[in-house]
């Protein structure tokens, strides 16, 4: 099993921490992991992205130009990364502010309106965990118990009282993610 993920959005949406939590979760499961962020001017106001790889095997390149899964949280990211999803792969996006929706027919597309839900349920601070939940529903590779362990190791202990609200946000994400276009699963993660 090798899962190559790109997560992209605005700086401040929690893209890098979401990637960190997935990487920690993979490590908790005994997998090989890598986390490669964009750093510098991009994360200071513009777009931020992170490549996370979770694998049973030694990871070769931590930087990739095609992905099994793209999690895209703004228009720039949809525009930039839609074409980089492998045929048969998965694209998950937040519909907030999207005018030009993803259109590929050879990949599975899911929509999670996490920004809208975060505002409605007053969960703005756990927005990225709603998105994480959507990912976990679509691709059940990392499990709740490991994600919670991952959160625990990546969050400073003064924030540990927030763990239950993060768990709630993950469950919300699992609930509200909807399929837009689903291709047959002959290219699922199991055959990699």
């Amino acid at each position: 099993m090798t899962e190559e993920i790109i997560i992209a959005g605005f700086g401040g949406q929690g893209v890098l921490s979401m990637g960190k939590i997935l990487a920690y979760s993979g490590m908790m499961m005994g997998k090989e992991v890598s986390w490669m962020p964009s750093y510098g001017p991009e994360m200071r106001g513009g777009t931020a992205n992170v490549t996370v790889i979770i694998s049973d095997n030694r990871i070769s390149s931590p930087v990739l130009h095609e992905f099994d899964t793209a999690i895209l949280l703004n228009q720039q990211s949809v525009t930039k990364f839609e074409s980089m999803v492998k045929p048969g792969g998965v694209l998950i996006y937040d519909g907030n502010g999207i005018v030009s929706h993803p259109t590929r027919k050879d990949i599975s597309i899911y929509r999670v309106d996490a920004s809208e839900e975060a505002v409605r349920s007053n969960m703005q601070k756990t927005f990225n965990m709603i998105v994480t939940g959507a990912y976990m529903k679509v691709k059940p590779i990392v499990h709740m118990a490991d994600v919670l362990k991952g959160l625990k190791s990546s969050l400073p202990s003064r924030h540990h009282h927030l763990l239950p609200s993060n768990e709630k946000a993950i469950e919300k994400g699992m609930e509200i993610v909807v399929p837009v276009n689903v291709v047959s699963a002959n290219c699922c993660v199991n055959c990699h």
Binding site: K20, E32, V33, M36, P37
Partner: peptide
């Protein structure tokens, strides 16, 4: 790249 990336 090696400086900024995280691995086990």
């Amino acid at each position: 790249m090696i400086g900024q990336m995280m691995e086990k």
